[in-house]
Amino acid sequence: MTRRAAALTCLILLLLIPRPAPAGTGEGKADHTVLFGLAGSSPWLSLRYERRMYSTTLAGLNLHLAAEAGIGTSPWTFTHEISFPTGISALWGGSRHFLRIGLGLTLTTFEQYDYWKDRDETELRSLIIPSIGYRFGNEGLILGLSFTPIFNPGGGAALLWLGLDIGWGF
């Protein structure tokens, strides 16, 4: 599972490699966004870069397809994992208000205790995090609030979760 997740992460990272900017639609086109996230795709904090790969119109509204990747951590909390959130998303809306639907894959470090040897071992785990939410802004200040349930298909577990983003589009 983790190997497949790592391969998918690499694919998403490939989408972020710089190339000619996509054709923009509507006013205030911003192909690059830097986002600071609370919860959401990375428990608990994350810093992510999002790049628009393709833009078109759907039902008279703008539709942007984007890929993102970043790093997350939880410096003030109890456990101190480092996570690597990646994902693809669709932003659909007017010039400043968007419905955001995404699918994320987050690799996270994970401490596993061996009781008999009395020591911790670090493993890498993958989580699938779909999201649906609202995004405000296009260029300049970006705000987002998403419903981001977290699934651990390998572990057979899930958790309702929310994410809050603040960022800058340029």
């Binding site: 596993q112 205790y113 061996d114 009781y115 651990n152 577990a157 958790l159």
Partner: peptide
């Protein structure tokens, strides 16, 4: 909740 196989120290 997310990692049912987690063995806490």
């Amino acid at each position: 909740t997310l990692f049912p196989d987690k063995f806490w120290s």
